[in-house]
Amino acid sequence: MGAMELLHVLTFASDAALLAVAGAVCWSLAVVCLIMDRLREKRRSVDRLERVGFVPWTGLFLGLAIIGGGCLAMSLPVVLGNL
């Protein structure tokens, strides 16, 4: 599927399909935050905050997972009904 076809599909998609896509994107970003949090925890350094920087990966993961789950839950009946 080319970029133009994908743009055409997203342009004419229903609201529930767009909500499902937004939920999937949020969950994908939540997985990235989870991986980054694990990498930060694995690093053995005394002054971690100064060398790695401070990003609240756990809070970002939790927020994105809740938002993504809510989007997917709201779009699930319509998406399943179209199958």
Rank of each mutant, 00 (worst) to 15 (best):
G2Q: 02
M4D: 14
E5N: 11
L6T: 07
L6V: 10
L7M: 11
L7E: 06
V9A: 05
L10M: 12
L10F: 05
L10D: 10
T11K: 08
F12R: 02
S14C: 01
D15C: 01
L19G: 01
A20C: 12
V21S: 06
A22N: 02
G23Q: 03
V25R: 03
C26F: 15
W27N: 02
S28A: 10
S28Y: 06
A30M: 09
V32R: 07
L34Y: 11
I35V: 15
M36Q: 11
R38E: 09
R40C: 12
E41D: 14
E41M: 07
K42P: 04
R44V: 15
R44F: 07
R44L: 14
S45H: 14
R48E: 08
R48T: 12
E50M: 09
F54V: 13
P56A: 00
P56E: 00
T58G: 06
G59L: 11
G59Y: 03
L60Y: 14
L60H: 06
L60W: 12
L60D: 00
F61E: 02
F61M: 13
L62D: 01
L64P: 13
A65C: 12
G68Y: 13
G69E: 07
G69A: 07
G70A: 15
C71F: 15
C71A: 14
A73M: 11
V78A: 14
G81N: 13
G81V: 04
N82H: 06
L83E: 03
